[in-house]
């Protein structure tokens, strides 16, 4: 009952008088199209930079590795090797590659596990995960930062993908419904965040070495170095 009261207080406070703060489904569909536009724009930017063969193959193989990491542990849904690989790509190879590998991993995984409107939100969430790791490269040498980054992204990923469930809310959407979904997925997000943080803390140096070796050996002038 305590949890129930808490949820109710939270819901009423944030939706602020419920009925007034309803937004229409059309807004959500517009948002969906906007996200597709953003992803398309990044893809197009990559196309127009005339990438060399090495870069194309590298992105393909990293996407495949992340997909295998996702599919191998599909029985434990929240332990997510894919997130770890995507963050590492963002850190070592670059923010654009991080976004591409993240977005494409979601797409390729959906070819195996089934396509849905949630795929687009997964693409956005994983893409942003890789890109943000690319922007914060310099801070990744400290262990506390890695722990916090992995943990926070576990939750952010869950929250972004939860938006896709709102489409079933009909012509009016209440913010309280979103909170219900978020609370329902709390344990999932928690284990995702914790496993992310542990993997980043323990395996970071080892994988950084592997990725940097490939980057230095085969892509010396192609990808602008972030570090």
């Amino acid at each position: 009952m305590i949890i129930q009261d808490f949820i109710q207080i939270l819901a009423t406070n944030i939706s602020g008088g419920a009925a007034n703060s309803s937004l229409s489904i059309l807004l959500l569909i517009f948002g969906l199209l906007l996200i597709i536009g953003i992803i398309y724009f990044v893809f197009k930017m990559y196309e127009q930079s005339k990438p060399p063969v090495e870069s194309i193959v590298l992105i393909a193989v990293l996407t495949a590795i992340a997909t295998v990491g996702r599919l191998l542990l599909v029985s434990i849904p929240s332990v997510n090797l894919a997130s770890f690989i995507i963050i590492m790509v963002g850190v070592v190879i670059g923010k654009e590659e991080g976004f591409l590998v993240g977005a494409l991993t979601a797409l390729v995984t959906s070819f195996f596990g089934g396509l849905g409107e949630w795929t687009i939100f997964q693409m956005l969430a994983w893409g942003l995960m890789g890109a943000s790791a690319g922007y914060l490269t310099s801070k990744f040498d400290s262990i506390p930062f890695r722990l916090i980054f992995g943990f926070v992204w576990g939750f952010l990923y869950g929250w972004i993908t939860d938006i896709s469930a709102l489409f079933f809310a009909g012509s009016t959407i209440e913010i309280s419904q979103y909170f219900a979904i978020v609370i329902a997925g709390l344990t999932y997000d928690l284990t995702h965040g914790v496993s992310n943080a542990i993997l980043l803390a323990i395996l970071y140096n080892w994988f950084k070495k592997i990725f940097e070796r490939v980057k230095d050996k085969y892509l010396p002038n192609i990808i602008s170095s972030n570090t």
Partner: peptide, 23 residues
């Protein structure tokens, strides 16, 4: 519209079973 990206997807789809067998 996106020849390079679709090339990447095709290659990734081919790499997935390969990497799986390697694992």
């Amino acid at each position: 519209r996106l020849p390079v990206i679709s090339m990447v997807i095709v290659m990734a789809l081919r790499f997935v079973p390969l990497i799986n067998s390697r694992t």
